[in-house]
Design a protein around this nucleic acid. Structure first.
Lengths: 334, 334
DNA sequence: CTGAAAGCGCTAACAG
DNA sequence: CTGTTAGCGCTTTCAG
């Protein structure tokens, strides 16, 4: 059996070696450290290799060197539009160094996140954890095994890149104040979320400074449906503007308001966060930009830098944000 | 050097072996084929292993067996909302079999897609290619090395799962006809796209049957911006309804129409495809549902089935679709 | 049911 | 600059 298939499988280094009349180590070097070989030798080896279709065996190399050229990227929910840009940025950066990236989707479950990490750890050089739902203890546990970079999670002593919404949210509140709003609402996100805590605190702080009244409307989980539901409470609380935890929720708020016969922005101003939907809604949504692709890129870059020597330490990179004004804010109706 | 670090790294099978007083092969078997060992022996070994924190080395195992328990998933653009549900479905299915998944983002570039595949091939058991931008020749080339399942790409002889929009799109055109529309537009997607060709053909065919006039409006690439641009041509062509290649484009069309002072649905009906935005736009968009998560799941399931024995052959799985009516369609203004 | 030995394909000292 | 020699950690015949 497999008679004609006898030499169908990938050629090995030995085959190249004998075909080229050199030792195996030369072939190895021709691929990994060509500087150590004569220019001609390298060329000859490479030519032969190409001819017989030799491709270095990644696994064998990894076993021998302990280097995998793989990283893992774990997110809570691929389908939430906040994450794809991060993934994209991370991918792009990894590509530049010929790293492959494993993607893990925890489905917002800490247990699943743990399981994914265990499965990845054996074949990656490092990990990027985005908006991790893990306890600090678990994060530290994993960080003890492999280098980890956190995104949107602030754990002392670990490398992290944080999207710092405070400036952007501050601008949002200031903007509403300048338009003449005096009573605003904050439609909150998950209570445990670092981003939510930061945004909420900023809305409250700046409102107080400017003398605005603020109503916080809790939602269990950030989603379109949560926004729709929040709309009713917004109306009841007789505010004239709302800042939502994220764009998805904001969009839900807009739909909910419309259902109740209110028009944005003439009857109510709405501002989202993350700016992931902003450019593709109608009316185009005013939102706090999160530069999330950059966050993904930065996280991988940090990780890769560390892997190639520099110390990771507890780098803490804060990306600033700003308000992107579009068409969902206006002076309140009189 | 590394004095105190001497036994810091992961324990190996030998350490477990001596600690448990058995041979290395027994330890190996305790993990991979426990049926071959005495119940007690297995338990003892496992206990010792847990104590000293032994975890089987994935890479060494892969080198020895040729099994990686990894698959690759390549998409053209993570940030396009059509893909995340597919990714999610694929992930979920892979998880069930403890497979890890590499994600590749080709950025719509065939060259990049090729490069990613080359990088993945060495460490995966199979590949799922979603909406591949590769030439058929290149696809076949890669399929010769590893099992491949295609999503939304119809190549004879290869396993593929196709989201068959024809029923859904047919329903859309019929729906418009019933509302009284006589002239409609199709805002096209990428010319090479299998889905686009199918959708376009269906719109044309059904329109002809029903006696509707149809204008095809080309766009270079499906995007919000393309939709906005298409809106002007839609208006010029004096149709009363438009079907767009995807939801993103449809959303752009809606925004473009609004910019020109037209309201959806009273002045113009709009229908999207894929139903990825449908529930989170205002007005809620009527769209052709794509069940994309199922497609991702099915693709991985097909691949995994094959890997565990069954023949892959040229399975051709067509997922049907249907129109989801929401609020962007109405009888034409008189 | 368990042990011994060979090897997966590659890299990394160490010689020459 | 190039060849020789050991492994990386695990699985897998083959004996016993």
């Amino acid at each position: 059996m497999t008679r004609t298939t006898v030499s169908r499988s990938t050629p090995t280094i030995s085959q190249v070696a004998s075909a080229a009349g050199v030792s195996r180590s030369s072939v190895s070097r021709a691929f990994s450290r060509p500087e150590l070989l004569g220019k001609e030798t390298v060329e000859r080896i490479l030519a032969v290799a190409r001819d017989i279709g030799y491709v270095p065996n990644h696994t064998a190399r990894a076993l021998s060197t302990g280097r995998y050229s793989n990283i893992a990227l774990v997110v809570p929910d691929v389908a939430n539009p906040f994450f794809p840009p991060i993934i994209e940025g991370a991918q792009a950066e990894a590509d530049q160094s010929d790293f492959c990236v494993f993607l893990g989707n925890s489905g917002e479950s800490p247990r699943h996140e743990d399981a994914l990490l265990d499965r990845f750890m054996g074949q990656v050089e490092g990990v990027v954890l985005v908006s991790s739902r893990l306890s600090e203890a678990r994060i530290r546990h994993h960080a003890a095994r492999k280098p980890i970079v956190l995104v949107n999670r602030d754990v002392k002593g670990l490398a992290r890149v944080l999207i710092d919404s405070s400036q952007g949210v501050e601008q949002a509140v200031v903007h509403l104040n300048e338009l003449g709003h005096r009573r605003i609402a904050y439609v909150a996100g998950p209570a445990q979320s670092w981003s939510n805590r930061q945004r909420r605190a900023t809305v409250v702080r700046v409102s107080k400074r400017l003398g605005l009244a603020v109503t916080v409307i809790p939602t269990p989980v950030p989603s379109y449906a949560a926004g729709v539901a929040a709309a009713k409470q917004i109306i009841k609380s007789s505010v004239t503007a709302a800042v939502a935890f994220d764009d998805l929720t904001a969009q839900g708020v807009m739909a909910g308001l419309a259902e109740q016969g209110l028009t944005v922005p003439s009857d109510m101003s709405v501002i989202g966060c993350d700016d992931v939907l902003g450019a593709s809604t109608y009316p185009a949504m005013t939102s706090v930009s999160s530069r999330s692709a950059e966050a993904g890129k930065a996280a991988v870059s940090l990780l890769l830098d560390f892997l190639s020597g520099s110390s990771l330490g507890d780098a803490r990179l804060a990306l600033d944000t700003h308000l992107v004004m579009r068409q969902t804010t206006l002076a309140p109706a009189t």
